[in-house]
């Protein structure tokens, strides 16, 4: 390979900068905004962006900028929880399935099939109808959608890795199976999982925001970008700022995650290329 992969290429840096900024907002929103994201001031409703309210105020007089800042917390928390659950469940089920094989593998994969058979948003809607509306329910509903993808990924990785030489040799020297999984198999499996998660993060944000836009996710007064766009819809013609700023924030965050995800997956693919090339040459 004549092209060497740049570790810190510009798109990765840009992505990290975007996500880092929003993460900072999520961790300490007080640093970015001194206003209460739930503080009603009816007499100041729908004021245009100004020095006092950078992004203007919404239909009940809350500062849109502070809602956007605090909204970052809602969105990022959703991403972390959803991917956390999905990875935890997916990796456990995928490892068990891939490692044990046999009828357990068959059963678990059929269960994953059932979940994969639902069109994504529809399953989230159905879950919402049963569990009720709210942020936690939405996180749960979206995590419900995502775990089978990780289970499949991990299973296929394990199937590939367990045949590799160093695993075989570990087994040959009589290492305990659990140790093999923990020491040798999982670390090799986690790389693709992390790449996949970085690619999924933006998509999770969009799905959760879509549910909130429909009125099913975060409930008022929790600041949430999708819900803010929905509330700002009727003001779009005159008070464009109510819907536009949260919409743009979501857009930028998703792009940030995509930049990171693609850089990472590009890196991994070129890495794979190298190893595959070595493999062929070695043969």
């Amino acid at each position: 390979m004549n092209k060497t992969f740049q570790l810190w290429n510009p798109s990765l840096l840009l992505g990290l900068a975007i996500v880092g900024l929003f993460a900072a907002m999520a961790i300490s929103p007080g640093l970015f905004s001194s206003q209460d994201p739930a503080g009603l001031r009816l007499e100041h409703r729908l004021s245009a962006p100004s020095a006092a309210n950078w992004f203007g105020t919404d239909g009940v007089g809350v500062d849109v900028y502070s809602r956007v800042v605090y909204g970052a917390r809602t969105t990022l928390a959703t991403i972390v929880v959803v991917l956390g659950i999905a990875i935890l469940v997916g990796v456990s089920i995928g490892s068990v399935s891939g490692y044990l094989g046999g009828w357990i593998d068959g059963l678990l994969m059929r269960v994953a099939d059932v979940f994969l058979a639902f069109p994504p948003l529809i399953l989230a809607l159905a879950t919402n109808a049963v569990l009720g509306r709210g942020l936690q329910q939405t996180m749960f509903a979206v995590a419900f959608l995502w775990w089978p993808a990780y289970a499949r990924l991990v299973r296929s990785q394990i199937l590939a890795v367990r045949k590799l030489e160093f695993v075989e040799s570990a087994r040959a020297i009589g290492a305990n199976e659990l140790r093999i999984v923990g020491r040798h198999v999982l670390p090799n499996v986690l790389d693709p999982v992390i790449v996949r998660a970085s690619l999924d993060a933006g998509f999770v944000a969009l799905t959760a925001a879509s549910l909130s836009f429909l009125g099913l996710g975060a409930q008022p007064p929790t600041p949430e970008w999708g819900r803010m766009v929905a509330e700002g819809q009727k003001f779009l013609l005159d008070q464009w700022w109510v819907a536009t700023f949260p919409g743009i924030s979501l857009f930028v965050l998703v792009i940030g995650f995509n930049l990171i995800g693609e850089s990472l997956s590009g890196r991994m693919q070129s890495g794979l290329h190298v190893s595959r090339a070595e493999e062929t040459e070695g043969r």
Partner: peptide, 18 residues
Amino acid sequence: SYLGVGMPVFFLALLLQL
């Protein structure tokens, strides 16, 4: 393609309507 993948569908719909 960045725009297409990152743009929230509901937000895009509103912009196109407008």
